[in-house]
């Protein structure tokens, strides 16, 4: 029984991407085109799933009510760009080169690039436990990346774009500054090289995790219960991280998928009452500006924090 998403990705590769590459004289990238098509199809399904599940939750069990939803359109644009658009394409080409260079360099010296499966051979041929282990390690790494992004002024100047949204919805997960995305990609790149991550081997599981991350930003009262909230991050748990009082250096609930790291390192707060979100100190352009205005304001704040640029309002 074949995966229908694979079939759709194959159709896009065969009937759109490959003929386009042929006409552009770029057939040397045809192998990657299929990988990108697969990524984009799974991304589109993520978006559809988010919409189908999160929208009713926000409609029927909202925490906040807003008369105007126009500021959410920018977040929507971020989501499309990140999940089905051009960003995955760059990730593919870049990661393909870096991963090949690093692991090949090791193999040149008869060393084998590290992978979890080599460390634990019992994982071979068992995709689900393999993926869960990979997910735990990556989530742990992401906890520290996220926590540090609140710790350093220059880094938070970029990350403030994510926190500035006062109308936080399931679309808000991907609203990030491009430089913040780049740092995250490098961070994950290093971890991935250390443990040998191959996300395309587990597209369905990646889809589920990305969905959970979107759900955690939804404007809904949903909690997974006492035990569930301690196993997976719920919208209620993550809203406490986006609360006005949690903006900046003294925040809580940094985790993305699993709350274990917050519990382990003393940053978990399960008691906060869900309320308003946003960063009162952030430039207004970060909250309500267009995509480009937000990117420019983030860059300005970043350069100002580094002392490269004078602050101007």
């Amino acid at each position: 029984m074949s995966d229908p998403l694979d079939t759709i990705a194959g159709w896009i590769a065969e009937h759109a991407a490959i003929p386009l590459l042929w006409h552009l004289g770029l057939m040397q990238w045809e192998d990657l085109a299929y990988g990108w098509a697969l990524f984009a199809v799974y991304g589109a399904v993520q978006v559809a799933l988010m919409y189908a599940i999160c929208l009713p939750l926000e409609r029927f069990f909202p925490i906040e009510h807003w008369p105007d939803h126009r500021v959410e359109w920018t977040d929507m644009f971020y989501t499309i760009l990140a999940r089905v658009g051009i960003l995955p394409l760059f990730t593919f080409v870049l990661f393909f080169r870096v991963q090949a260079a690093f692991s090949g360099l090791l193999a040149d010296h008869d060393l084998v690039a590290p992978t979890l499966e080599r460390a634990i051979p019992a994982l071979f041929g068992h995709p689900v436990p393999t993926f869960i282990l990979y997910a735990l390690i990556l989530d742990f790494a992401d906890y520290w990346r996220h926590r540090l992004s609140h710790r350093f002024r220059w880094w938070y100047a970029l990350h403030a774009l994510h926190h500035a949204q006062r109308q936080m919805t399931f679309w808000s997960d991907d609203r990030n500054h491009l430089l913040d995305d780049l740092i995250a990609a490098l961070w994950f790149g290093v971890i991935a090289l250390a443990i040998g991550v191959a996300p395309l081997q587990f597209p369905v599981l990646v889809l589920v995790l990305r969905f959970l991350e979107s759900l955690s930003h939804a404007n809904t009262r949903l909690s997974f219960g006492w035990l569930g909230d301690r196993l997976l991050i719920s919208p209620r748990f993550h809203r406490a991280h986006h609360a006005i009082r949690a903006a900046g250096a003294k925040s809580c609930n940094y985790g993305a998928v699993f709350p274990f790291w917050d519990m382990l390192f003393g940053t978990a707060d399960f008691t906060a009452t869900p309320g308003m979100t946003g960063d009162p100190k952030a430039d207004e352009a970060l909250a309500s500006g267009s995509y480009l205005a937000q990117q420019w304001a983030g860059l300005r704040g970043f350069l100002h924090a580094l002392g490269v640029m004078e602050h101007s309002q």
């Binding site: 074949s2 995966d3 079939t7 194959g10 159709w11 590769a13 065969e14 490959i18």
Partner: peptide
């Protein structure tokens, strides 16, 4: 005498 051909985009 038959040809067995891989179909890259059709998992078959």
């Amino acid at each position: 005498g038959k040809l067995w051909v891989t179909r890259r985009f059709a998992h078959s």
